[in-house]
Design a protein around this nucleic acid. Structure first.
Lengths: 132, 132
DNA sequence: CCGATGAGTTGCAATATACAACTTGCTAGG
DNA sequence: CCTAGCAAGTTGTATATTGCAACTCATCGG
């Protein structure tokens, strides 16, 4: 019965290495990982509030507040006062697209000798893991 | 032909979220992610030098130097002068084991409704990705 | 009208990291 | 032998990310 334990150990080892390198992997294209994820989250969830972002990414609300302030200063996002929804500007959308293109290109190189089937399966496992 | 492109997009989206959360997942147990990875790396590679660690994790040598100094101050690792190899102390090994147990328990909860087969396949995909 | 609650901001501190300058030890040429 | 140079490591400095705590502000129930 050490089987399950060893399986988990394998996942743990790889997860740790991945986490350690994640910063570099998910960057590129001029946006930090946080900036990229916040912008894409707002794009995908028009009604998301700062507090929702904080909850989803397990960040302190102050961290989110400052990150959003940075994005606003860069002209990538607008925060209407009060309960106005967050809005990604055209420039913000363009930056996200550009960053996504750069990152996807890097990913393409990294997965160039993977079959479509394996890429699909990997994506599905990641999705399932993330959803858990 | 957009198939491959969409597949890559899926992986990219999930990897981004995964990266954003991986740090938290790989922590816990009293050791920071960096401390944990450096200690385990040295345990697995007796002859690894600081410069090797820096290369493997894409960290500056100064960062590694300071992290190792911290670990030494905590009594978890020994750096003999000169070209002496790094050595994880008994205390260091115990800390690694304890942290691994905590993290693995968290992982176990997260993967509790996954079949062994899927866990294995996921680990293999992560391994392959990390190796690339 | 007032107290409570929740969202958001700001002050402060800790941590992680990179880059650059420096030190040191070893090695290859002469 | 010397010495120039390189590789490894350390330290000074600056920046970025983050959390916690204290604060403000608005809204809502009684």
């Amino acid at each position: 019965m050490p089987v399950r334990r060893e399986l988990l150990g394998s996942v743990h080892d790889e997860l740790t290495l991945f986490a350690r390198r994640a910063r570099g992997l998910a960057q590129g294209g001029g946006l930090s990982l946080v900036a990229y994820t916040l912008l894409t989250h707002v794009l995908a969830n028009q009604d998301a509030r700062p507090v929702d972002l904080a909850g989803f990414y397990r960040l302190d609300k102050s961290t989110v507040s400052r990150q959003l302030a940075d994005l606003e200063r860069l002209g990538l996002l607008e925060r209407g006062a009060h309960g106005q929804p967050l809005r990604v500007t055209d420039a913000g959308r363009a930056q996200v697209d550009a960053a996504a293109a750069v990152q996807r290109a890097a990913l393409e190189g990294r997965l160039q000798d993977w079959d479509d089937e394996d890429v699909l399966a990997f994506a599905e496992y990641l999705r399932r893991f993330n959803a858990g």
